[in-house]
């Protein structure tokens, strides 16, 4: 067992490859999380314009990309776009797929946050002459983000985990590199290494999330 899963020799040999994967996973996360947050914020701000011409297309957009499995979306972009004359490469495809998919999730979270701020807050701001956008920026959004911080963090956890989908389209992230190492060494130890690294990477976020959730519960009591 130890030979197969915790082989020290193989760990030493695979370490540089797995490390490259780790950096790429971090890099990928640092790109797709802000992209998703930005997309979500744009969607939520558009949703705050309660005009039917904005609202219905927006709802369709969000529903569509939340219902569409991100792996299918990614494969479709990667395998399908070249037929439309667009060769984007794995990394760009991951970025676009995440922008569409996780942006829709972040968007719903931001929207719930904006809705949680009492109407009186906007009325007070507008009564002093602030524009609609200023009221959103200075009064509503800071409270909205605070109110949905646990959900934002929880979704971010999911997004980081989902970056392992990049391995399907040959983005050299952690899982992909671990599998490369596994196929070279004929030993599953690199996969175990990847699993441990994912855990160590995400565990602090999980702890933070638990603390935020407990605090939110205590605040409600």
């Amino acid at each position: 067992m130890i030979e197969a899963f915790f082989n020290i020799e193989i760990m030493k040999a695979a370490w540089p490859i797995v490390l490259t994967g780790l950096w790429n996973t971090i890099l990928l996360s640092l790109i797709v999380v802000p992209l998703g947050l930005l997309g979500g914020l744009i969607l939520a701000l558009l949703a705050s314009i309660r005009h039917p011409l904005v609202r219905w297309p927006l709802m369709a957009w969000v529903d569509f990309f939340r219902a569409f499995p991100p792996l299918v979306l990614l494969v479709l972009l990667f395998a399908g776009l070249p037929f439309a004359g667009l060769e984007l490469g794995g990394f760009a495809c991951v970025a676009i797929a995440f922008f569409l998919n996780t942006g829709s999730y972040y968007g719903e979270i931001f929207r719930a946050g904006i809705d949680s701020v009492p109407a009186g807050q906007v009325e007070a701001a507008r009564s002093t002459g602030l524009t609609r956008m200023q009221a959103m920026r200075y009064v509503v959004l800071p409270q909205a983000v605070r109110n949905v911080m646990p959900d934002l963090l929880s979704n971010t956890l999911e997004v980081v985990k989902l970056t392992s989908l990049g391995s399907v389209v040959a983005v050299p992230e952690l899982l992909y590199e671990a599998r490369q190492a596994q196929s070279i060494t004929y030993n599953p130890t690199p996969i175990v290494m990847a699993a441990v690294i994912y855990f160590l990477l995400l565990w602090p976020l999980v702890r933070l999330l638990s603390r935020l959730e407990n605090r939110a519960l205590a605040g409600r009591r």
């Binding site: 009492p118 009186g120 007070a124 701001a125 009564s127 002093t128 002459g129």
Partner: peptide
């Protein structure tokens, strides 16, 4: 609106 102050029943101060 700058010339018209308004005070509300529920204060509506910005809590943050």
């Amino acid at each position: 609106r700058r010339r018209i102050g308004m005070v509300f029943q529920s204060f509506n101060l910005y809590p943050h």
